[in-house]
Simulated assay, not measured.
Amino acid sequence: MEKVMGLVSDKGVVIFSKSSCCLCYSVNVLFRQLGVVPLIYEIDQDPEGREIERQLVMLGCNAPVPAVFIGGNLVGSTNEIMSLHLSGSLLQMLRPYQILC
């Protein structure tokens, strides 16, 4: 878990993703539509990707990708993100990380 926590600490919004994952792409697009440019870690392109994936599962991700961290805290995967978005809570969580246009 040390590797994952090191990658997300002191960062705003971080998404662990796989380049071929359509759900990862959808979550990334959602965040950009909400005015947030997340830091994306494509774990399928990282030599330590399998270890990162294992650590994400150990942290509690139901599905290892997309794994979304906001303010250094694990928020969850697609289901959690969409539930938060539909309830209006996601936008509140993202407010400090939105790019002002």
Rank of each mutant, 00 (worst) to 15 (best):
K18V: 01
H85F: 11
N28V: 11
C21Y: 03
M82I: 13
L94A: 13
L39D: 14
L30I: 06
L39P: 00
S89L: 15
P96E: 08
N73A: 13
M1I: 09
V4E: 08
A67L: 02
S17A: 14
S9K: 14
Q98H: 08
M1L: 11
G76Y: 02
F16E: 06
L59F: 02
E42M: 07
E48C: 10
C101E: 12
M93I: 13
L86D: 11
R54D: 13
I52Y: 06
I43H: 06
C61M: 11
M5V: 05
V37D: 15
E42F: 11
N73D: 13
C21N: 03
V57P: 01
V57D: 05
P64C: 06
N73V: 09
G71T: 06
I70S: 03
V8E: 04
F31R: 02
F69A: 01
V75R: 02
R50L: 15
E53G: 07
D46A: 07
L7Y: 08
G72M: 06
V37C: 10
D46T: 04
M93E: 13
I99K: 11
I70W: 03
N79E: 13
E2M: 09
N73F: 10
I43F: 05
E53Q: 14
F16G: 04
S17M: 04
M1Q: 09
P64L: 02
V13L: 08
D10E: 15
L100F: 13
Q55K: 05
G12H: 05
R54N: 13
E53F: 01
I81H: 00
M82D: 05
G6N: 14
E2V: 08
S20H: 14
S20L: 12
R95F: 11
K11P: 04
G49F: 04
S17N: 09
N73M: 11
V37N: 14
Q45L: 13
T78F: 10
G76H: 03
L23W: 12
Q45E: 14
F31H: 05
I43L: 08
L30S: 04
E48Y: 07
L59P: 03
V65G: 01
L7D: 06
Q98D: 08
M1T: 11
G60N: 04
